[in-house]
Nucleic acid binder design. Structure first.
Lengths: 108, 108
DNA sequence: TGGATATTTTACTATATAAGCAAATACGCA
DNA sequence: TGCGTATTTGCTTATATAGTAAAATATCCA
């Protein structure tokens, strides 16, 4: 409500980045790219989704600033742009571990 | 496609956590909680959204394992459950900085 | 018990997102 | 130039999500 305009935009941007990773297929694509750059055709095969879908998901990741693309010949190669995200993913895994552990505690 | 079932579930869970933070209002709520626990009524005022909306957003954060709630008297207090997320948010900010910088480079 | 406050749930509507297919574009090569 | 491959875009449909208002639940206090 009473928030500076810039700060609100900043939060919206941050949310957009997080949302970009908040989809199973995009997260899989992103994690696949941890192993190095990949062309769309390889990614589509690995992830097992249709070409158009993969292309669209990659464009969401790109618009969020998470990956870069590089067209070489007929192929477009994507690669991760900001390595610090890796730590982040580890943290998310900790969140899940944590949750699983306390769910187990409830059952016990 | 050819992915172990458990791994797929794990990715889906991770995506769910990321998605939970991938909404401006929820991210604001979360960042507000960085300052310590808050009751729903305070959060609703700070964030400037309706009570029901805030309540639902908090429940999304809770189901993702990001926050915990604690009912004391008439009020429900929420607090962050996994501190490592803070680093994470810093990283997201780096993503945006990075993007802004290269957008500027394009313009120049 | 009954009234007041805090919170959640429900129901409804509007909007956003995802998947799939077909068409369009871009590039390389004969 | 014209064909084949890689990728993106547009369109359609199904599903998911967000916001609002009203009702339901829970707790406190007189």
């Amino acid at each position: 409500m009473h928030m500076p305009r810039d700060e609100r935009l900043f939060i919206e941007e941050k949310a957009r980045v997080l949302k970009a990773l908040g989809h199973p297929t995009r997260l899989r694509l992103f994690e696949e790219l941890r192993n190095g750059e990949r062309c769309v055709c390889d990614l589509a095969t690995t992830v097992g989704a249709g070409f158009p879908a993969v292309s669209k998901h990659l464009s969401v990741l790109k618009q969020a600033g998470l990956v870069d693309d590089d067209k070489r010949g007929q192929q477009v190669f994507y690669k991760i742009r900001v390595p610090c995200i890796f730590q982040f993913i580890n943290c998310i895994e900790a969140v899940i571990e944590n949750r699983v552990r306390s769910d187990a505690a409830l059952v016990a």
